[in-house]
Nucleic acid binder design. Structure first.
Lengths: 138, 138
DNA sequence: ATCCTACATTAGACAATGTCTAAGTCAAGA
DNA sequence: TCTTGACTTAGACATTGTCTAATGTAGGAT
């Protein structure tokens, strides 16, 4: 993630303190924050950052393909910085914990041509749901 | 869908005009309405029906396993009455059209045990994304 | 057929999440 | 250092969903 900012600057991104902070919050593996969580954590580093800027910045990172948008529950969208490594998600039905997972095989190939209805299919998203070890013991 | 109401009455559901109308709106294949769309269509049949009742009724139908909740876009949830036939969804990235599709093979089986992190995995949801024939020609 | 009562419905306030606008600020090239 | 177009801000607004207290009613009991 450290070269993310350089990469974006190469694409004409103006480098501001706000964007730096948002990128810093999203740094790391297995990060799946909501926009408000990103805002809260960013505000610890840069108290005057506004909600609108966080939303704008997240939207730009998604458009640029640097961050994945995940909506596993129909509530707030979550932002996953692990966009450069294809993966899917495993979600706990009780506590909402999200793990990145890697199913085997070609998930696109299992959709037969006659089930594509003339669509040009470009992507597949998979969400596994279950109960995590923490929730199943308590 | 015609025996849905009977089935639910057998489970102790009180049969009201409002619930009848919501069930009628959801009748059919390839239906994927939002709660507000259901409300609008229900209000054509029963003008005084309230939003709260539609939300309540949809929530109950989901709990009872008669209707599936689908969130393909992080916006409004959609309600799919085709809950008794396992299927997945193919969504147009441009116009949002949703088709029911049936991938081959066992989607659960492609998640290796070492990728389950101790979860008891119960369900899998797949969303294919692409451009529909209508949008790709225009 | 009528009555009772627990369950269902209603209007509207409230909550959560996301979008937009107009005014002020600033990064980075000239 | 200056300038300018891109960025940020506060807060209004929009969308979607939830909750509450008052009122209505389905269906069993009589």
């Amino acid at each position: 993630m450290s070269d993310l900012l350089e990469r974006l600057r190469g694409r004409g991104w103006r480098l501001t303190a706000q964007r730096r902070v948002v990128a810093e919050v999203l740094d790391g593996d297995h990060v799946h924050y909501t926009a408000d969580e990103v805002h809260a954590k960013a505000a610890e580093l840069l108290p005057e950052i506004s909600r609108a800027t966080v939303y704008n910045t997240l939207g730009e990172l998604v458009s640029l393909g640097e961050v994945m948008e995940v909506s596993t529950d129909g509530r707030a969208k979550r932002y996953d910085p692990n966009a450069h490594h294809a993966h899917q998600h495993l979600v706990c039905s009780q506590c909402g914990t999200i793990r990145d997972v890697h199913p085997t095989g070609d998930l696109m190939a299992v959709l037969p041509a006659e089930e594509r209805f003339g669509f040009q299919v470009a992507a597949v998203e998979v969400t596994y749901r279950g109960v995590c070890p923490n929730c199943s013991t308590s």
